[in-house]
Write a protein that binds this DNA or RNA. Structure first.
Lengths: 334, 334
DNA sequence: CTGTTAGCGCTTTCAC
DNA sequence: GTGAAAGCGCTAACAG
């Protein structure tokens, strides 16, 4: 990499003159500016980012910590994050916690040494179950702001973005009820997560409001994703249901396939609604009616919230929790 | 962030003493080392990464540039990259080209200013169609090594990792032929890509070797992904086929759903094989038989190749192109 | 055993 | 209009 020093030497001027010239300083003559810029162009000079970061104590880099990139929801959020960050002149360093608290702590530790200006984070499953957020607090104490999304922690003061999980499930359940479904099962692979619990509550409330008894035997909690297929198969065989609300990203799709295989007509005999994104929803037949989580927008918003905090607002003023409304996209399975 | 300077001041010793003590230098007395470490611990001191990077002219950061994170293949490769990099003490900065040459060039430019030590890259579609790789060459000239994967360029000297696309398609076609399929269609949404072309050639060769006439009307090229569904539907309606080789990540799944909807029995009347990964392959009924691209391993290998280049090998010695063999995982659709 | 100094690449204040 | 010098945080060669 070419440096100011080298340019200065070749031009036989001082380093500071070169620096000023490249920054169009008033102090430098038009003539010199021209000479300097010409040579800089010739060598394709770019200011060293690391030196700038050191000088300015800011990296224009955001640390993004997500549980897994294999989850399509997080993939799409990351897509939005990268897009928006890139447009705003920020880079992202991505870490995956793989649902491990330890890895999440490590990542924060590792990046909180000047590598990044702040974090965007969705908590790992373990973080939520053991409810340990000391590492997040410590980051905030060091002056590194955090924006949490989706899997947020309650007892921490920072900006947050979540979808309206409770009402999303409430409305979805209602839409099943409106279609004369009265034996509505709930499938979940995410019962450990904050969002999972909210969605279950929304489901129960909708049933309650419609005077349908909440039958706990219709709630299928799947702890290991590998067991999902067989558990769903067994459940559908054994229970007389006419509606399913699948509150995670994948069990709805499985349910459609399994039901179809069993000769159950979807949506005639069984309506299915899932939480998912367009991409996956179209990979079933019929396509999965689903609750749109606005993943890409969430990503963009986290970036803007963080940049706003970094560039304008002090670290202790008016933290916001933004709740994104959701909508149901009918696609044939309900 | 606490600095050496602050520690030194509080301990009333010099900065270099603190630095040496923390690095367990022989020069420093055990007593002092203890004092220093204790205070460092107390303040949770971490050496400033940016300062270290500047000092050492290396960032331990890898720039990863992929076409899109929404493509499950790239998502999984990225997963492997992050895992391996993190284990080896490297961070990754992720950029998405979104299939645009311009964005790819920008990303390289932007990171080739000291932000990263090298690149892992899969070329954008546009990069491959217009075959413009000046930006890659320029990166190499600046001393920044590149490891390319999947979508590689021929006319560039760097390490590369690809799967054996030609033989993968050849073998898959053969496996269809072995199942008495003689009217085998090929579906592709990736005809502009190097890998797409190789796969088509493998398919044709297998037919040729089996004395089956290559019928170009059985090759369905889909240019816009949004049209995939309707084009596949129309194609299956209009053509009398008993086998499908889908050479991209999604059309195989669509084909299964569409065929099933049309009352065609899979795999009895129609065998389908796709290129895909486990995750998506299980979202259809029957599950999609597919060619495993070893995505996660590819990611890990790119990292190791790059680190090897960064830490051991000079930039001009023996570039390798590693070809990963593939295997077919039978899942019911063939 | 501890401290001073220089330098990584850059910006910026202050002299000239 | 140009240059010298300081400083961001760190390490390491060299002095003492």
């Amino acid at each position: 990499m070419i440096t100011l020093k080298q340019l200065a030497k070749e031009l036989e001027v001082s380093i500071s003159t070169v620096s000023k010239a490249l920054n169009d300083s008033e102090e430098i003559s038009a003539e010199t500016i021209k000479r300097v810029k010409k040579l800089a162009e010739h060598y394709n000079y770019k200011p060293n980012k690391v030196a700038l970061s050191l000088k300015n104590s800011r990296t224009r880099t955001i640390g993004v910590i997500i549980p897994s990139i294999l989850n399509p929801f997080f993939a799409r959020v990351l897509y939005g994050i990268e897009k928006e960050a890139s447009e705003k002149g920020y880079q992202i360093i991505t870490c995956m916690s793989n649902e491990s608290l330890q890895k999440e702590q490590n990542s924060i530790q590792l990046l909180a040494n000047g590598s990044v200006d702040g974090f965007i984070l969705a908590a790992s499953e373990e973080t939520q179950t053991v409810n340990n957020i000391d590492h997040l607090k410590s980051s905030l104490n060091q002056g590194l702001p955090i924006v949490m999304f989706d899997r947020v922690a309650n007892d921490i003061q920072c900006d947050k973005i979540i979808i309206d999980d409770y009402n999303a499930a409430y409305n979805a359940t209602n839409s099943l009820i409106a279609k004369k479904r009265n034996r509505i099962a709930l499938f979940s692979t995410i019962n450990n997560l904050s969002v999972g619990k909210l969605r279950v509550n929304g489901y129960k409330k909708a049933l309650f409001d419609a005077n349908i008894e909440v039958d706990d035997s219709l709630i299928l909690i799947i702890n290991k994703e590998v067991e999902a297929y067989s558990k769903i198969l067994q459940f559908i065989k054994e229970h007389n249901i006419n509606g399913i609300l699948a509150i995670d990203n994948s069990s709805g799709l499985m349910a459609i396939n399994i039901a179809t295989d069993l000769g159950i007509k979807v949506p005639e005999d069984l309506s299915v609604i899932g939480f998912s994104n367009e991409m996956l929803s179209n990979y079933s037949s019929p396509n999965l009616t689903s609750i749109d989580q606005n993943s890409e927008d969430i990503g963009k918003m986290t970036v803007n919230l963080l940049i706003d905090r970094l560039e304008n607002k002090p670290l202790d003023s008016d933290y916001k929790t933004k709740i994104i409304p959701t909508s149901i996209t009918e696609r044939g399975s309900s």
